[in-house]
Design a protein around this nucleic acid. Structure first.
Length: 424
RNA sequence: GGACAGGUGGCCGAGUGGUUGAAGGCGCACGCCUGGAAAGCGUGUAUUGGUUAAUAGCCAAUCGCGGGUUCGAAUCCCGCCCUGUCCGCCA
């Protein structure tokens, strides 16, 4: 969410950000309306506060007179009249503020200056690692997975619905190995604090990280309570310090968490319907960082390098893509995607999205730090990225490590966990 | 799920209708004192909004959250949330 002062003092920067996202027609009118409402709001507040100050003064006179045993009927009547006027003004203020908040919560973050303008065709591959395998003769993961007994999509659909997956045998063991291998790497090598968090969260948490109110249709909600299944561990982990003020020396903070993730994928019907590339429930290890504003860019590069290390450890060829403004997510100011090449489906698969949110989430979630004792609190910068998403890594391994006899070799790094060097 | 008890500033803890943003203590910061430190003394120590060049002043709001009563609510009433204890239930 943007600060009201942003609307007031930097409306042009906001408009330019929306233009670079290619969304000026959508958000231009929203910004216009916000500017008008902001003016109305301030006028009303001034009027209300002036009357409140008058009433407070009268109230004190009443108190003194009563204590002295004098009559205060005149002052009481006057104060009552002021109270009615205040109530009337506040009745107009409430809808103004509600509408303003609704509007502000729906405006995306401003992309950083070095983010390319335009839609996804303007995305930039900034570097690559490893050599993608020739696609010739390689079967897609769902075929290998089924024939080796690692993946049971039919029964997943039967017990839950399409888009729900059952991993079996060494397939299940491989998923478990991802959790252990990734959490161990991030905690012991990179200093992340491991967290195990609820996968059901309340509405303020979902608003804090930006999933709500805008993307409610994409979220699974519990039927009789205001609770939601998380689409990523980013939600509970980033909200850990919601409504808190941290000391400067606590920054940067770094957390990693395994969690299942639930996504309705409304509007994605027909895309990636085969295999495990787009499912309603999947698992991943998420990395979340908080830092001081001046460290944002460096922290993003650091986060990205941590996610890359996982892929290098697995020996999977990948590329790093800087997303263009129009392809950058709602709350993000700058995002790098990590894409792994899966030769069986012949596609680059997004396995991690590393984003710097600047103070966008911190404002919504009210996460601050005090730069020095006695100084005013400031909003932290938040970052997050997958490290990494399991199903697509599973798919990439089944395809990249596929052998001519139909078996799959297990990446070196996972063997201690999987307990085998070959699947099938 | 049921019955009690409770939610006040960084912490502890007063405060049951009136000038209380909130006594007192602790902690913290700065100053004095000291060879240095401790003790002691003094000063200061919340957040948000409005106004403003200002994180200077001034005004407003905030004692779990929301509503109500009242000229006036931390204090009274209603609803909700959370915590603790006991009972029930359960992996």
């Amino acid at each position: 969410m943007h600060h009201l002062r942003m609307i007031r003092e930097q409306a042009e920067a906001l408009r330019d950000g929306m233009r670079r996202r290619g969304k000026l027609e959508v958000y231009g009118p929203v910004i216009d309306e916000s500017e008008t409402l902001d003016r109305t709001r301030r006028q009303t507040i001034q009027a209300v506060e002036e009357k409140k100050a008058q009433r407070n003064a009268l109230t004190q006179v009443v108190g003194k007179k009563k204590k002295a045993g004098e009559d205060a009927a005149v002052e009481m009547a006057e104060a009552r009249a002021l109270g009615e006027a205040i109530a009337a003004l506040e009745a107009t203020l409430a809808p103004t503020e509600a509408r303003l908040e609704e509007l502000l919560l729906g405006v995306p973050n401003i992309p950083l200056p070095d983010v390319p303008e335009g839609d996804e065709s303007a995305n930039v591959v900034v570097r690559s690692w490893g050599t993608p395998r020739e696609a010739e003769g390689i079967k897609p993961h769902w075929e290998v997975g089924a024939s080796l007994g690692l993946l049971d999509l039919e029964r997943g659909a039967k017990i839950s619905g399409s888009g729900f997956v059952v991993y079996r045998g060494t397939g299940a063991r491989m998923i478990r190995s991802f959790m252990n291998a990734m959490l161990d790497l991030h905690t012991s090598e990179f200093g992340y604090e491991e967290c195990w968090v609820p996968v059901v969260v309340n509405r303020p948490s979902m608003v804090g990280t930006g999933q709500l109110p805008k993307f409610e249709d994409d979220m699974y909600a519990l039927k009789d309570e205001e609770l939601f299944l998380i689409p990523t561990a980013e939600v509970p982990v980033t909200n850990l310090y919601r409504d808190e003020i941290l000391a400067a020396e606590e920054l940067p903070k770094a957390f990693c968490a395994y969690s299942p993730c639930f996504r309705r994928e409304a509007g994605s019907a027909g895309k990636d319907t085969r295999g495990v590339l787009r499912v309603h429930e999947f698992d991943k290890v998420e990395l979340v960082r908080y830092c001081a504003p001046e460290d944002g860019e460096a922290q993003l590069q650091l986060l990205l390098s941590h996610a890359e290390t996982v892929l290098q450890g697995l020996g999977l060829p990948y590329r790093v893509v800087l997303l263009a403004a129009g392809d950058t997510g709602f709350g993000s100011a700058k995002t790098y995607d990590l894409e792994v090449f899966a030769p069986g489906v012949g596609k680059w698969l997004e396995v991690s999205s590393c984003s710097l949110f600047t103070d966008f989430q911190a404002r919504r979630a009210n996460i601050r730090f005090r730069p020095a004792p006695g100084e005013k609190p400031r909003f932290v910068y938040t970052l997050n990225g997958s490290g990494l998403a399991f199903p697509r890594i599973f798919a990439a391994i089944l395809e990249h490590y596929q052998q001519p006899d139909g078996s799959v070799t297990v990446p070196e790094a996972l063997r201690p966990w999987v307990g085998a060097d070959r699947l099938g």
